[in-house]
Design a protein around this nucleic acid. Structure first.
Length: 258
DNA sequence: ATGGCTGAGCTACTCAGA
């Protein structure tokens, strides 16, 4: 079974690239983030024509997450975090891999920049709530895969120049500690688990030729619960979509599980 | 040190992104 995750930076602006990606790689499930549209304006039909059912938690202009799936998926939940901000950042589903039930959580973590603003505070509170909820979910089902745009650079190796990012909301030590706290519940950052030394990125800024210069960062991740580690066959960062015309600034991360 | 690019909503420009 192939599962991919991609921050598409607007599902409507990206629909052509998304359809090409689905044709090229044929994932069973594609988790997308930053769809930047409401449910009612989501391009369900285009994706249906490519063989995918859409499960959408949209929002006008900002945020928004969705599952695109070849097969029907169960127990869709859009109320993972309840707060006054009401941002569409998490959608979860149950999937069946052979006879095993896996909880799949698709997230778009707040960016948090600039620091010293309420945006940064929100990121910290959001992560705290998220960790607490995941802890509860593990008690019900230990098989969990969390994928998405975490807006966290886990380690120095994961960004082109870590010195530049020490006071950035993506790399500040207290944010990376939150990420480790999540891992310590019983997950592995599966890309790093299977590639101990490799430097690859999932995001390159649109500005100042970052893509051409490979000034990128690894902020899109799959966290796989320890119970599922031996089922993961491959993990791959697919750079092809980032090099296309009218690309998203992120590129997909893909996993294959037995 | 700064700005640079893109998308949404809307039609002038701001907000947000990372």
């Amino acid at each position: 079974m192939k599962i991919s995750s991609w921050n598409v930076n607007s599902v409507r602006a990206r629909i052509k690239n998304i359809i090409e990606y689905l044709k090229d790689t044929s994932p069973d499930i594609l988790m997308i983030q930053e769809i930047k549209t409401e449910d009612k304006t989501f391009p369900y039909e285009d994706l249906k024509n490519s063989g995918y059912e859409s499960y959408v938690y949209g929002q006008k202009s900002y945020n928004g997450v969705a599952f695109l799936s070849k097969k029907k998926i169960d127990k869709i939940n859009k109320s993972f975090i309840k707060d006054k901000f009401n941002q569409s950042r998490i959608i979860e589903a149950n999937i069946k891999n052979k006879s095993e039930e896996i909880k799949l959580i698709n997230i778009y973590v707040p960016n948090g920049n600039p620091i010293e603003t309420e945006k940064y505070e929100y990121k910290k509170i959001w992560l705290k709530s998220f960790i607490k909820e995941v802890k509860n979910k593990l008690l019900i089902n230990k098989n969990i895969i969390i994928g998405g745009d975490f807006n966290v650079i886990p380690e120095e190796i994961d960004v082109y120049n870590f010195k530049k990012f020490e006071n950035d909301a993506l790399f500040k030590l207290e944010i990376r500690k939150k990420f480790r706290e999540l891992l310590n519940l019983g997950f592995q950052d599966i890309y790093r688990f299977l590639n101990k030394e490799k430097t690859e990125y999932t995001f390159w800024d649109y500005m100042a030729g970052s893509w051409q210069k490979n000034y990128g960062m690894r902020i899109d991740h799959f966290l796989v619960s320890n119970s599922l580690l031996n089922k993961v066959k491959t993990v791959n960062i697919n750079k092809k979509p980032r090099g296309k015309v009218k690309p998203s600034d992120h590129t997909p991360i893909e996993i294959e599980i037995n």
